[in-house]
């Protein structure tokens, strides 16, 4: 016991295990209660969103969704203690997960091509992207720091710029054809690339790789290389390739770490819109 208490003091306690999994327990009780109500109450003629249990589950679900959205506001205010941001995040994650049970029971497993199922589908997208986010936050930062070593992002970029300048200077005496090759690396080499390149780490038409291939071919072809300029350029291009690799692994990890929010946040607001339409339509055509 003593060691555990000491550990708690010493070790960082993440939002998942916050306060001895308090919110996991609360969310579990909520889910089990909802399931019991669904199974035990005899709905006429069958369970759906329009029964007493259905309305209750729907109300709880809607209020939970609104409260979960408030994390966006809450996280911009810093506070400590019982209602700390960590506690909120913990509740956000576990209560968000409980929505899967509560809202699925609210549907009564009646799904179709309509605004109601749209709201349900959007909610599932939000929850699943949130699960992705939790997993990403739990695993990717380790990858991120392992990859970059001691280098900051600025240093990575500066290193690339330095190599570019060296390449630029080294290529000055080159023939126009050869300088064109080096320009590929200097001008047609995007470090980040598009969304696909960032998420997959595949940079198919990278100018640096092409410059390296072309200059190497030039050397192999036995072109005159006064002052070993081409050899110097090959080694510079290879160093740039290595630097690019590190920067791009960093970019890919960051992209995987950030991309879920681009789904989570807009889908949340689409969900709130669909939820509004769902609630209004249900009572409009009561």
């Amino acid at each position: 016991m003593a060691s555990r208490a000491a550990n708690r003091g010493a070790l960082h306690e993440g939002f998942l295990r916050h306060n001895g999994f308090r919110w996991l327990k609360i969310a579990s009780v909520l889910c089990i209660t909802a399931l019991a109500a669904y199974l035990l109450v005899d709905a006429e003629p069958r369970p759906n969103g329009g029964t007493a249990v259905g309305y209750a589950l729907g109300t709880i679900g809607a209020l939970l969704i609104l409260w979960l959205t408030m994390l966006g506001l809450r996280k911009r205010v810093i506070s400590r203690g019982r209602y700390s941001l960590k506690a909120w995040t913990s509740a956000h994650v576990y209560l968000g997960l409980s929505l899967i049970t509560i809202v699925t029971l609210h549907t009564g497993f009646q799904l179709g091509w309509n605004v109601h199922t749209l709201a349900y589908a959007l909610m599932m997208i939000v929850v699943l992207s949130g699960i992705w986010g939790v997993i990403a936050y739990g695993t990717l930062p380790r990858t991120l720091s392992a990859n970059r070593g001691e280098a900051t992002q600025g240093q990575m970029l500066e290193g690339l710029r330095l190599l570019d300048r060296q390449l630029h200077d080294a290529a000055q005496p080159l023939l126009p054809r050869q300088s064109e090759m080096v320009r590929e690396s200097l001008e047609n080499c995007s470090v980040g690339g598009g969304l696909y390149a960032r998420l997959t780490g595949r940079h198919r038409r990278c100018g640096n790789a092409r410059a390296l291939t072309a200059v190497k071919a030039e050397l192999r072809a036995g072109r005159p290389d006064p002052g070993q300029r081409l050899s110097l350029i090959v080694s510079l291009l290879e160093r740039k390739e290595a630097a690019l690799g590190q920067a791009r692994r960093h970019i890919r990890t960051r992209a995987l770490l950030e991309v879920w929010l681009y789904i989570h946040v807009p889908a949340t607001f689409a969900l709130i819109a669909a939820l509004t339409a769902h609630i209004v339509s249900v009572f409009y055509y009561w």
């Binding site: 992002q153 470090v191 980040g192 690339g193 960032r198 920067a247 950030e258 681009y262």
Partner: peptide, 9 residues
């Protein structure tokens, strides 16, 4: 722009 996702999203 290089490291964040904002540039491409």
């Amino acid at each position: 722009r290089t490291f964040g996702l904002d540039a491409v999203m």
